Amino acid sequence: MDTAHDGLTFRDAVDADVDALVALIESAYRGDSSRTGWTTEADILEGQRTDPEGVLAVIKSPDSRLLAVERDGSVIACCQLEHRGTHAYFGMFAVSPALQGAGFGKTIIAEAERFAGEVWGAEEMHMTVISVREDLIAWYERRGYRRTGEMTPFPYGDERFGLPQRDDLRFELLVKPLA
């Protein structure tokens, strides 16, 4: 179902969006284009962030939604929501580097939280963030997420997740109550 907020339109991604979404995600996290935004991972990871198969798997999963966020008819952001019983998982979040810092991220995460709470009845939103990304974690903390200290290892050796440039990468679970 399409919804609109602050000049943005939210809709479920479809197969035809895959190439545009892969390009968006790569532009936000990898290479020189990502350096114009502040969410870049270019200094800690090279290689790919995702691929068409990964994006299509999220679109096709019965427990997931991949939201495509449009402005003036162009996809400028996306995020994944996965229904996991009493909580929802938030991931694959990307905003076009040229538009970062304009407040779209706040609007998008608020809409994701609203959907997970109202439609799925989720009590919490969970996400994992690379633990060395202090600036990004601080941004989520300002949105009400808390660090749990619960870590999972980075998948070293699996090039689908990129080519790590350092040996201390791991994911930390962040949690926010939705009720």
Results as ranks from 00 to 15, higher is better:
2 D>V: 12
5 H>L: 08
5 H>S: 14
6 D>R: 09
6 D>A: 13
13 A>H: 04
13 A>L: 09
20 A>M: 09
21 L>P: 03
22 V>C: 07
23 A>I: 00
24 L>G: 01
27 S>G: 01
27 S>H: 00
29 Y>G: 00
32 D>R: 01
33 S>C: 08
36 T>F: 06
37 G>I: 04
37 G>L: 08
38 W>L: 10
42 A>M: 08
42 A>R: 07
44 I>K: 08
45 L>A: 08
47 G>M: 15
49 R>E: 14
50 T>Y: 09
53 E>V: 14
54 G>Y: 12
55 V>S: 12
56 L>V: 11
57 A>L: 13
58 V>T: 04
60 K>G: 05
61 S>R: 14
65 R>Y: 05
66 L>I: 03
66 L>G: 03
66 L>R: 01
67 L>N: 02
76 I>R: 10
77 A>R: 02
78 C>Y: 13
81 L>C: 13
83 H>N: 06
84 R>L: 14
85 G>C: 12
86 T>M: 13
90 F>G: 00
91 G>P: 12
93 F>N: 02
95 V>F: 02
96 S>L: 02
98 A>P: 00
99 L>T: 03
104 F>S: 00
104 F>V: 00
107 T>M: 03
108 I>S: 04
108 I>D: 04
109 I>D: 01
110 A>R: 11
113 E>C: 09
113 E>W: 01
115 F>H: 06
119 V>H: 06
120 W>D: 04
121 G>P: 07
122 A>G: 09
123 E>L: 10
125 M>F: 06
126 H>G: 06
126 H>E: 12
128 T>P: 02
128 T>K: 01
130 I>M: 10
132 V>W: 03
132 V>A: 05
134 E>C: 10
134 E>H: 14
136 L>G: 01
136 L>Q: 01
143 R>V: 10
145 Y>M: 02
146 R>P: 04
148 T>P: 04
150 E>C: 11
151 M>W: 10
152 T>H: 04
153 P>T: 07
155 P>Y: 14
156 Y>N: 01
157 G>A: 05
157 G>N: 07
160 R>N: 12
161 F>P: 07
162 G>N: 01
163 L>I: 11
166 R>Y: 03
167 D>R: 04
169 L>R: 11
170 R>S: 15
171 F>K: 10
173 L>Y: 12
174 L>D: 07
175 V>H: 13
175 V>N: 13
175 V>F: 09
176 K>T: 09
177 P>E: 12
179 A>M: 13
179 A>V: 13
179 A>G: 13
